[in-house]
């Protein structure tokens, strides 16, 4: 963890107020279970596909899941008070145009993706690495917005992150993405919401030959199998 903004505070265990237990009697009991034990109960959407992904990868292109990334949806009008408050709390200004990624454009650290003029996705590493729970992070950002307009929602489990790498990664994506992925149109550090065949995804180019594809959880099995199928001619 290199980005100071995620060393927000000491890990807080099971507390949090925005995404999950924000209501009446959270953590009244059961908090005696260690956080690590709780995290061990998680299953990522592509967990059962790990072997398939390994077997379906090769020298020219390979696929893996980056599970459990912390993801928080931010809604704020650009230049509004909530935008400013969020930028302060994130330590990164909100991106201002389509494709822009603020912060760690390579995905290592805290990055904020532009989803729409007033919608952003803040992405940070897994709680298991940072010690900061998605709920806690969302709670902190929510506190920054306060009673102002906008929204902070923990969506960490909403999407998973697949990483497609290698010299033929772009070709594999071009089999399904209609948007222009050529480096002239889609340089490293670009992320957009678009369709992969008929499935809505975020496509984020984190390196020259490295792409993140972020499908919603229920679409993950299909997207993994679809990508593996497209990879076969290069593997």
């Amino acid at each position: 963890m290199t980005d100071s903004t995620l060393t927000i505070e000491a890990p807080e265990g099971a507390a949090g107020s925005a995404g999950g237990a924000g209501g009446t009697n959270a953590s009244a009991s059961g908090a005696d279970v260690g956080r690590a034990a709780v995290l061990a109960h998680r299953r990522s959407p592509a967990q059962d596909l790990a072997d398939e992904m390994t077997q379906g990868s090769g020298q020219a292109v390979w696929l893996r899941e980056l599970p459990f990334l912390t993801q928080v949806t931010l809604r704020a009008q650009p230049d509004g008070p909530s935008s400013e408050a969020l930028a302060g709390a994130l330590g990164v200004g909100l991106p201002t145009r389509v494709g822009e990624v603020a912060g760690a454009i390579d995905g290592i650290g805290v990055a904020v993706l532009w989803l729409s003029p007033d919608e952003f996705l803040a992405v940070a590493p897994d709680e298991a690495q940072t010690g900061v729970s998605p709920e806690a992070w969302a709670g902190r950002l929510s506190t920054a917005v306060g009673a102002g307009p906008g929204q902070v929602v923990d969506v960490s489990a909403n999407r998973t992150t697949l990483e497609l790498s290698g010299p033929r990664a772009r070709s594999v994506l071009e089999k399904s993405c209609e948007i222009d992925l050529h480096p002239r149109a889609f340089p490293v550090g670009t992320a957009v919401v678009t369709l992969l065949e008929s499935t809505g995804v975020i496509v984020w180019r984190t390196g020259e030959e490295t792409w993140r594809v972020m499908p919603r959880a229920s679409f993950t099995t299909h997207v993994v199998r679809w990508l593996l199928d497209g990879m076969r001619e290069y593997c």
Binding site: A14, G16, G20, A21, G22, G23, T24, N25, A26, S27, A28, S29, G30, A31, V33, G34, R35, A37, V38, H41, E135
Partner: peptide, 23 residues
């Protein structure tokens, strides 16, 4: 969690932590 008829009425919800530690 108080799950009694009186403590948890119809069309209500509660934020809680399960025995597993999961919120």
């Amino acid at each position: 969690l108080d799950v009694s008829k009186e403590g948890f009425g119809f069309m209500e919800f509660r934020e809680t932590v399960l025995a597993s530690g999961i919120e």
